[in-house]
C-alpha cells in the first residue's frame, strides 16, 4: 500500500510533533503547517490524502481553511478531520456544515485513537 500523505495544521508545535510521531509510526507520510495560510499552501503544493485541521489557528482559522477547500473542486474531496481543545457544539456543527468528516477533542481522545479514526477515513483511497 502506498504511504498515505497526511497534512497536520496545528499551531502548537509540541502537539504537532506528537501527532507527527504517532502518524509516522502508523506508516504515514506527514506534512505540517503552523497556520491556516500555510495549511492552504501545503494543500495546493502537495495535495494530501487527508487533513488533520486544528480549529483555532493564526492567520486563517480552521473554518476559513474549510471554506477554501470546499470552494475548490481540486480539494473539496480531501477528507478533513477537525481538532479542537474544547467540545463546543457550535464549532462542531460549523465544521460538519463546512464538510469536515469528524470533529475530535484533543483532551478527550488519545493520539492513538485520533490516528485510527484518521486512517478509517482514507481506507477507500
Amino acid at each position: 500500500m502506498i504511504m498515505p500523505k497526511i497534512l497536520i495544521v496545528e499551531d502548537d508545535l509540541p502537539l504537532l510533533r506528537m501527532y507527527q510521531v504517532v502518524l509516522q509510526k502508523a506508516g504515514c507520510q506527514v506534512l505540517s503547517a503552523l497556520d491556516g495560510e500555510e495549511g492552504i499552501e501545503k494543500v495546493r503544493d502537495d495535495n494530501p490524502d487527508l487533513i488533520l485541521l486544528d480549529v483555532v489557528l493564526p492567520k486563517k482559522n480552521g473554518f476559513q481553511v474549510l471554506e477554501y477547500l470546499k470552494s475548490d473542486v481540486n480539494f473539496s474531496r480531501i477528507p478533513v478531520v477537525c481538532l479542537s481543545v474544547l467540545h463546543q457544539e457550535e464549532d462542531i456543527e460549523q465544521c460538519k456544515r463546512l464538510g469536515a468528516k469528524d470533529f475530535l477533542v484533543k483532551t478527550d481522545v488519545d493520539p492513538e485513537d485520533v490516528i485510527s479514526k484518521v486512517l478509517s477515513y482514507i481506507k477507500p483511497h
Binding site: 509540541p14 502537539l15 506528537m18 481543545v85 474544547l86 484533543k106 483532551t107 493520539p111 492513538e112
Partner: peptide, 17 residues
C-alpha cells in the same frame, strides 16, 4: 481555558502513548 487545555492534551497524549 484554551491555553490550559493545550498542554494538558500534550501531557495526556504522551502518557497514553
Amino acid at each position: 481555558s484554551h491555553q490550559l487545555l493545550t498542554p494538558i492534551a500534550l501531557i495526556r497524549g504522551y502518557l497514553s502513548m
